[in-house]
């Protein structure tokens, strides 16, 4: 564990650190309540992939980006959206298919969007969004801006051709993009050693394309932050893309329908014993930046915030019938019926 590094040298201000703890707790609570809503009476439909356990990845990396940067991710997207500042209300309303949802109830769990926050989705075809991120970075460079795009995907996506095509062009054209593989060691139910020819992912995705590769323990949120900051600086300086393998662990199954029989109880319990949120609470307490009372208060506030989001979602109107034909195109949509 690299907690020692974190303790030795804080890389953030107290306010930011406490904010990150709060965001991680919010995501955890949001996901656990989503789990319950999904189980109880099918209030949430379709596929739903929970982020519990992986919180430091999104919070620590998005936490060092600027407002004019862009964030894009795959289908396990609730955590990134909340970390980017999407309100729990809009997120929960989307899960419940409401018109007040972040995608007006037409995207669902896998397709969260928030244009105002530079959150470009929520993409559900594995690897399909990886070229989009290169295109977003291309646009920054084309327009002579120094915004960067950060793009998240799971270890399963490393086996899609879209990744390798995009990585080649991102490196060839030195595009300001940060690629993050959230290596939770499982491509749905296929463990890394059964789907990847090499276990060193920086060789497959970094070395192979002349892209600097990092492999870090993503349970250490401040290591996530410093690594991302370094990559963002590199991108802004016109030096091109970076690749970060963030080693993490997901507590829930791949999706709600996955009982996760491919792992043992012990493996899951071991992971939970190293819970990144609990670890960060300890670190912040050791620094004297927060105490038990404040943590307690934070838990209560977040509980109320998530309860409020459920209430907001349930009281919001369903996406109305006339929305079916809305937003198909910018031009007036003429149904070809």
């Amino acid at each position: 564990m690299s907690q020692a590094t974190t303790e030795a040298k804080p890389v953030v201000s107290k306010n930011q650190a406490v904010g990150w703890l709060r965001q991680m707790l919010l995501i955890r609570r949001f996901e656990e309540q989503s789990y319950k809503l999904y189980q109880m009476g099918g209030k949430i439909g379709g596929f739903c992939h929970l982020y519990s356990g992986q919180e430091p990845v999104a919070v620590g990396s998005i936490g060092v980006l600027r407002e004019d940067d862009y964030v894009i991710t795959a289908y396990r997207d609730h955590g990134h959206a909340l970390a980017r500042g999407m309100g729990a209300n809009e997120a929960m309303a989307e899960l419940l298919g409401r018109y007040t949802g972040c995608s007006k109830g037409k995207g669902g769990s896998m397709h969260f969007f928030d244009a105002e926050k530079g959150f470009l989705g929520g993409h559900a075809i594995v690897g399909s969004h990886i070229p989009l991120a290169a295109g977003v970075a291309f646009a920054s460079k084309y327009q002579n801006k120094d915004s960067v795009c950060i793009c998240y995907f799971g270890d399963g996506a490393m086996n899609q051709g879209s990744l390798h095509e995009a990585f080649n062009m991102a490196s060839l054209w030195k595009l300001p993009v940060i690629y993050v593989v959230e290596n939770n060691m499982m491509s749905m139910g296929t463990q890394l050693h059964r789907h990847s020819c090499l276990m060193d992912l920086t060789v497959r995705c970094g070395t192979a394309y002349g892209i600097p590769g990092y492999s870090i323990d993503a349970n250490d949120i401040e290591l996530v932050a410093t690594t991302t900051r370094e990559c963002a600086a590199r991108a802004r300086a016109g030096e091109g893309p970076s690749f970060i393998e963030m080693k993490t662990y997901r507590y829930r199954g791949h999706s709600m329908s996955d009982p996760a029989k491919y792992r043992t109880k012990e493996e899951l319990e071991d992971a939970k014993a190293r819970d990144p949120i609990v670890a960060y609470e300890h670190i912040l307490k050791d620094r004297g930046w927060i105490d038990d009372e404040a943590i307690e208060r934070m838990h209560d506030e977040i509980k109320a915030e998530v309860e409020e989001s459920i209430k907001f979602a349930e009281e919001s109107e369903q996406t109305p019938p006339e929305a079916l034909y809305q937003d198909v195109t910018v031009a007036h949509h003429i149904p070809q019926e």
Binding site: P131, L132, A134, C149, L172
Partner: peptide, 21 residues
């Protein structure tokens, strides 16, 4: 000029279009 990577450069075009090009 792009490499022979239709999936990749189509996706890049879409990403660039999403942010204003």
């Amino acid at each position: 000029d792009t490499p022979i990577s239709e999936e990749g450069f189509c996706g890049m075009g879409i990403g660039a279009a999403m942010v204003g090009l």
